[in-house]
Amino acid sequence: MAINFDPIFDGMQNGPEKIKGNFDKVNDGFSWGPQQKFLNLNGMTDNFDYYKIRNDGNEVLITLYVTGDGNGSCYLPTSISKRIGYSLSTQIVGRTDNNGIGFMNINTDTGKCTFHKPDGSGMYIQALVPLV
């Protein structure tokens, strides 16, 4: 079924060009998709954890705040985790509330994310991770 757009653009100077120009601004590849929640949070708070995929598909932005003893875990969808690097594990550095350093390990095969912290304080993670 074909749609006739002529009545929509009738009387609009450069209507189709303006719409295409606006679409190109939004779809430049450098914008980010919507926030998405990690899957199966286990032993973690659910108030500050999300990831976003860049529209061109080249990077994922990971944002987390891990509380407790750090024995919790969560999952990225395997459609994303399998595109992170070429090894079976990727490690991302985080900063604890006590100015220590902790880590988030991502099993790229399963998407499981686990954490290591030197103390019981919260740990912030915010990282841009390239996708292949």
Rank of each mutant, 00 (worst) to 15 (best):
A2F: 13
I3Q: 03
N4P: 01
D6I: 05
D6Y: 04
I8F: 00
I8G: 03
F9T: 01
M12H: 13
M12T: 08
Q13V: 09
N14Q: 14
G15A: 10
G15M: 06
G15V: 03
P16Y: 02
D24Y: 12
V26M: 15
V26H: 14
N27I: 04
D28S: 08
F30R: 11
W32E: 04
W32D: 05
W32S: 02
G33F: 03
K37E: 10
F38M: 09
L39A: 11
N40L: 07
L41Y: 05
T45G: 08
N47Q: 05
D49W: 08
Y50E: 07
Y51I: 01
K52D: 11
I53Q: 03
R54W: 00
R54K: 14
N55Q: 10
N55G: 00
D56E: 05
G57E: 05
E59M: 04
E59P: 00
L61K: 12
I62W: 15
T63W: 02
T63H: 15
L64F: 14
Y65F: 15
V66Y: 04
T67I: 12
G68F: 09
G68V: 01
G68S: 01
G70C: 03
G70K: 07
G72R: 01
G72S: 07
S73T: 10
S73P: 00
L76R: 01
L76C: 12
T78P: 05
T78C: 11
S79Q: 13
I80K: 15
S81E: 13
I84L: 06
I84Y: 10
G85Y: 03
Y86S: 01
S87C: 14
T90W: 10
Q91N: 09
I92L: 10
I92Q: 06
G94V: 12
R95N: 07
T96N: 00
D97R: 08
D97M: 03
D97T: 11
N99F: 10
G100C: 10
G100N: 06
I101T: 07
F103Q: 15
F103I: 05
M104Y: 02
N105V: 00
I106Q: 00
C113T: 10
F115T: 02
F115R: 00
H116F: 15
K117A: 06
P118F: 10
S121K: 01
S121A: 01
S121H: 15
M123G: 03
Y124F: 13
I125F: 09
A127C: 02
A127I: 00
L128T: 02
L128H: 06
V129A: 09
V129L: 12
V129R: 08
P130R: 10
L131T: 14
V132E: 07
